[in-house]
């Protein structure tokens, strides 16, 4: 029997009386790749932040590895997270390896220097994403695609069981996006990672995810990618015509 890595039951989240998420129910099994889609302001990033315990739900239950996010303790280290790109200062004076090392800074290592073994893990992660040769290069001098790969290395350097990615392909051109998804899929298969990824690129995520979940405040449709893309509920969630969403690449 598969274990649910993520369990969300009747989740509601509101800020100052403004309902952001409503009656969300979702179970994600170990080794699944789930894409979270929806229009801007749908609550996708909020959902990830609830999974991480960065904010608390108004009502309902969130369980990660069977525990509420606030009580994860040491198990929190089994979550890799890649926030949206605009959250960092591009001129920050650090190398690519320094960025990856930050993935090893956790509550468990508070006040202790990183060990040699931990630093080796960071180097291995850079190798896995193909950036070993650029480890000493200033992070600001990497291309957008290389920076995203470095962030992916940072997210996987703790050898997580669950990977939460928030629009990792934003701002990347199509070939770079494709390479990024391929790399992610390889890592997912190799380590049986559970991946939850927020994306605006419906076509790309449909190619790689096992399941898509479309939300816009509430869950509109979820299931296998082709079923979701062909569902009339999708247009309702996005409040726009089908062709606007996919062009000629539908299904």
């Amino acid at each position: 029997m598969s274990i649910n890595v993520v369990e969300i039951r009747d989740l509601d989240y509101a800020v100052n009386g403004n309902q952001i998420l409503e009656k969300i129910n979702l179970q994600i099994e170990a080794g699944e790749f789930v894409g979270i889609i929806g229009p801007n302001g749908a609550g996708k990033t909020t959902l990830l932040r609830l999974l991480l315990g960065l904010i608390r739900q108004t009502s309902g239950q969130v369980r990660i590895f069977g525990l509420p996010p606030a009580q994860l303790g040491k198990k929190r280290e089994a979550i890799g997270y890649m926030p949206q790109r605009p959250t960092f200062d591009r001129r920050f004076p650090l190398s690519t390896l320094d960025v990856v090392n930050m993935g090893l800074v956790t509550a468990g290592s508070l006040g202790c220097p990183l060990t040699r073994k931990q630093r080796e893990k960071a180097r291995c992660s850079l190798e896995q994403v193909g950036l070993a040769a650029l480890q000493n290069r200033p992070f600001s001098r990497l291309s957008g695609g290389e920076q995203q790969r470095a962030f992916l290395a940072r997210a996987i350097c703790r050898e997580p069981l669950l990977l939460l990615l928030d629009e990792p392909n934003t701002g990347l051109d199509l070939p770079t996006q494709h390479n990024f998804f391929n790399l992610l899929q390889q890592l997912q298969h190799k380590y049986n990672l559970t991946v939850v990824m927020v994306s605006h690129d419906l076509v790309a995520i449909a190619r790689f995810a096992h399941r898509l979940v479309c939300i816009n405040r509430t869950m509109h449709v979820h299931g296998k990618p082709l079923d979701v893309l062909n569902s009339p509920h999708l247009e309702k969630a996005y409040r726009c015509e089908f062709d606007v969403l996919f062009g000629r690449e539908r299904g």
């Binding site: 991480l52 960065l54 994860l72 929190r76 280290e77 979550i79 997270y81 926030p83 959250t87 960092f88 200062d89 920050f92 650090l94 960025v99 090392n101 930050m102 993935g103 800074v105 956790t106 509550a107 468990g108 508070l110 006040g111 220097p113 990183l114 940072r154």
Partner: peptide
């Protein structure tokens, strides 16, 4: 000196630091 790596991580990406459980 004691909290250099934590302060540096928070300076670069506070969201990541919080997600890792850092106070």
């Amino acid at each position: 000196v004691i909290f250099f790596k934590e302060l540096f991580t928070i300076s670069f990406d506070e969201e990541l630091a919080r997600a890792a459980g850092l106070p």
